[in-house]
Structure formats: structure tokens, C-alpha cells
Nucleic acid binder design. Structure first.
Lengths: 129, 129
DNA sequence: GTAAAGTCTATACCTAGTATAGAGTCAACA
DNA sequence: TGTTGACTCTATACTAGGTATAGACTTTAC
């Protein structure tokens, strides 16, 4: 299949597929006589794996490491588990940050009403502090 | 005061201050004979305002709009309130996304133990799906 | 034969800064 | 007066993970 079909089947844009190839995430595939990229089912599986990883917010570098690990089926998978654990820590941390931000924003929001003038705006006053 | 002092007093790096000036967030200040930027107390106030806004994750464009609004003290401040409200919606949304991600990650994490080989790794198997 | 759709590469752009090179400025000290 | 060191200047490149474009080429359909 050509890149357009792979794009539709994977849900990744054509540019993204080419970008992943350039980044070394997706192996360079065969080309047709006219230099078109030609993919097969394994390309689709690989791309879906990458997409799955990205949906977990893994970075491209992390995904590269995962792919590298996958190529050594007899080694220990502890690095994979560590990666996921570490990621959970970061996500938890980020949630806490955002919760705090949300609190600040809600305090801000309650400092003003819609019918004031700029010079009396409670939000702007809080921002000045 | 020169940029180094403003940097220390504001907690923004020197490059960031110059960056804000280039972006039009911070007004271009006076220069000394040797072309050094010379700031005063009002520059520090302005920079602190920007920093406060950034800590709320407002974008540079949004801050520009706020600054613009601030310059019209007799207009309605409803756009300011809307900005904060809209931001809260986005933050809330992002938190929900991250909570879901965290759940997925924890399901992943529990799919494997540290003592397996890569080819038996529960995490990698989930990622293949 | 030709028009439309698809693909190719290369390049620029996005956010919010950070890092660097190479040059100039300024103050203190010998 | 010379020089050293700290500070500042501009311009440019880089970060992550793509997205968007231009201009050329290929393929397909009629």
C-alpha cells in the first residue's frame, strides 16, 4: 500500500508518517519505480505501536528505546516497566500542578464580575500583585 | 537598572527578558550610551505581571491581549473574565485527559513484573494491541 | 492526451523559551 | 595606561512533535 492508504488505516497524517521515518522510528520502507513509499501489514503494525505509545505521551526518544528493547526478546523487560512507572510519576505530578493552577484560576475568576470596567477589574488587580 | 539586575529581581532570565521585548510583551526600554538596556521600577512591575500571567499558563498572545485591555481602563473587563473562564475549561479538560492517561498507565504497569523477558513482557503486549 | 489526484523532497513555521558565538562596554586594579 | 573580568549586545541555532507549504514528479481515470 502507498502512504495515503497507510495514513487512513493508521490515523496518522502523511506528514507524520514521513516525519517518523526521518526520526528513525519507522524503518525506511521499499520504494516503487516512481519512488513512492510502499508499505505492508508490518509497517501498519509498527505505526500502530508508535501511535499507541504516543497516546501514552511517550516521547519519540522513549519510543525508540522501547523499539530497541523489543529487538532483544531474551533480555529483561525491566527497562520497559521502569519507563511506564516513571511516566506515571510524571503524569501524577503534572496533574497536581494543573489542579493547583485550576484553584488559582477559580480564585481569580471569583474576584470579578462581568459588569466592571477594566480599571476596576478584580482579575487584573490580582494579576498586578 | 541594567538587565542583569532586572533579571535577578524578576526571576526571569536575561534571555527571556530580551525575548519578551522582541515579542512585544515588554516595551522597548531606554538605552545607555553604550547601548545597554536601562530599566526602572515600572519595567519590573510589567515583567512581574507577565510572569504572573505565564504562571497561569496564559500564552504570550493572551498576555498581549490582556495588556491591550489594560490600556483601556474605561472599557468593560468582560474579555478578561472570559479569558480566565476559558482557561479554566481548558485546564479542567487537560486534567481529565491526564487522569485517563494515568489510569491506562497503571493498567499497563500491572500487566507485567520486573522479572520477565522482553518477549513475555505484559506492557509490550498491551502496546501491540 | 490530458486533467486530477497522489506522492516526492526540502524548507519554513509553531510555542516559549534556552544556548551559543563573537563582539562591544564598563569598572576596578596594578 | 593597560588589562583583566564581568557584563551586555545582536544574531543565530536549537528544543519537541509535528503541521503547512512550494514546486516538481508519478499515477490513474476518462
Amino acid at each position: 500500500m502507498k502512504i495515503g492508504e497507510l495514513s487512513k488505516k493508521s490515523g496518522c497524517s502523511i506528514q507524520t508518517i514521513r516525519f517518523y521515518e526521518k526520526q528513525g522510528l519507522l524503518e525506511a520502507c521499499n520504494r516503487s519505480e516512481g519512488n513512492y513509499r510502499i508499505y505492508d501489514a508490518s509497517s501498519l503494525r509498527a505505526l500502530r505501536f508508535i501511535k499507541q505509545c504516543r497516546s501514552l505521551d511517550l516521547t519519540i526518544l522513549e519510543i525508540k528505546q522501547l523499539l530497541n528493547t523489543k529487538n532483544n526478546p531474551d533480555k529483561s523487560c525491566s527497562s520497559v516497566n521502569n519507563l511506564i512507572q516513571q511516566h506515571m510519576v510524571e503524569v501524577t505530578h503534572r496533574i497536581a500542578e494543573l489542579e493547583e493552577l485550576k484553584l488559582t484560576l477559580s480564585e481569580m475568576a471569583s474576584a470579578c464580575t462581568d459588569n466592571r470596567k477594566v480599571k476596576e477589574c478584580g482579575v487584573l488587580q490580582l494579576l498586578e500583585e
